[in-house]
Simulated scan of single mutants.
Amino acid sequence: MPIRSPKVAVCLLLLVSFVWGAEFVLIDLAVAKMPTHAFNAIRFCVAAVSLLPLLWFSRHQLQGVRWLPLLSASALLGFMLFIGFYTQTEGLRFTSVSNAGFITGLNVPLVPLLGFLLFRTQVARSVWVGVIVATAGLYLLTMGEALEINRGDMLVLICAFGFASHILLTGRFVDSMPVVPLSILQLIAVAIYSTIAAALSPEPALYYADSTPLTWQDHLQDPIIISSILVAGILGTAYAFWAQSASQQILESHKVALIFAAEPVFAHLAAWLVLNEHLGNQGLIGAAMIIAAMLISELGDRKQKVTVQPLDQTAVISK
């Protein structure tokens, strides 16, 4: 059925945040064995293939599609994703998980800020309050007592700009383009960019230079890598970016960013359940502030009339 309710869209994006948070442990283990470019190339190939069945539901929408604008938009969105995923993973090699989590979370305030600077997009005062509260909550949830800027921090800062730009640009494209082809093509673009980057890199494509040489057969027999690719590719990538594209036909970009700010909350919950890690008082306060920020943004917009436009018929969830 078509997605027409903002509440359904919010639930879809919260599920995306949950998947992203829960898969962190698997991906962290996988990229310790397989370099980032190779992992992302396979991950995004799996993601693109897993979305292909949805083309059956949207095949009538392919008639009359303007392919050049669609391919151009997909290449640009894919490049933003490629930059975001690569710099985040690579940055973790040089900085702490806490620093990376907070700096990645800066895409929350960056979305309305870049939207205002680039497109003069006006947002309600309640949204700015929510952004400030969410940023403070992310700090308490992920940071220690001091913030030290290093090479990894700068890489992850680029990641935050990449993800924020992707959210903004998705909001500009989804109203005029079919969601499923747009989602599939941008995932293919990331796989192509990652493959090219792996081929051009002076380092080995399938293993780290200072580790034991590995082949494709070795990786295919590793349950951690296989499970990571399947979970990250199908749920964390294919479903996630289809849900984002479909939901942004109803929700504004800044609201999507605030919902995605719940990702570190779910990541800590997964770590607590799987690794027996605990948030502590500071982390609990930060998580509560993130949830409060989402509520502030939503409740503050209640007085404004919400315009719900008919969704593209390709944005469907099969029963």
Rank of each mutant, 00 (worst) to 15 (best):
A243D: 05
P213R: 07
V174E: 00
S98D: 14
T95G: 08
I234H: 07
F266Y: 12
S50H: 12
G283E: 06
L114Q: 10
G137E: 02
R66K: 15
Q61Y: 05
F260Q: 12
L138H: 06
L54E: 01
I196H: 00
Y207W: 03
W242D: 00
P35Q: 08
P181Q: 02
H166F: 04
L269M: 13
D222N: 15
E277H: 11
E90Q: 11
L311S: 15
L138I: 08
K319R: 14
M177V: 08
G84P: 03
F24L: 12
I3E: 09
I27W: 01
I290M: 08
I132W: 06
A146G: 02
L251G: 09
E145K: 14
W216T: 11
S201G: 03
M1Q: 09
E90S: 01
L54P: 07
K33V: 05
A209Q: 10
Q282M: 11
L157E: 09
M289N: 01
R93F: 13
P112G: 04
V31N: 06
L214E: 04
L76H: 07
T87C: 02
A267T: 09
I132M: 15
S253Y: 10
L275F: 03
E145L: 12
L155M: 12
D153Y: 01
S227G: 12
P53D: 06
L118W: 14
A232K: 05
R302Q: 14
V10Q: 14
A30L: 07
L29V: 03
V174K: 08
A238R: 07
L15A: 14
Y139G: 12
V65Q: 08
P202V: 09
T170R: 07
P69Q: 03
I188H: 03
A293C: 09
V156K: 02
E23I: 13
A270W: 10
E277M: 03
T135C: 14
S297R: 05
D28S: 15
M294D: 04
V316D: 05
V306E: 15
P109I: 00
P178N: 10
Q63R: 15
Y239T: 06
S17M: 02
R93Q: 10
A205W: 03
H166G: 04
A246V: 14
A134M: 09
K255H: 15
Q186C: 00
L138C: 11
M34P: 09
P53A: 05
G152Y: 08
A41S: 13
V127P: 04
Q186H: 10
F18H: 12
N276M: 13
H37W: 13
Q61L: 13
G162P: 02
A271P: 08
Q248E: 10
S74M: 07
I27C: 13
L273W: 09
L70W: 12
L92V: 07
Q304A: 10
L185F: 10
M143N: 13
L29R: 15
I42H: 08
A288P: 06
L62V: 11
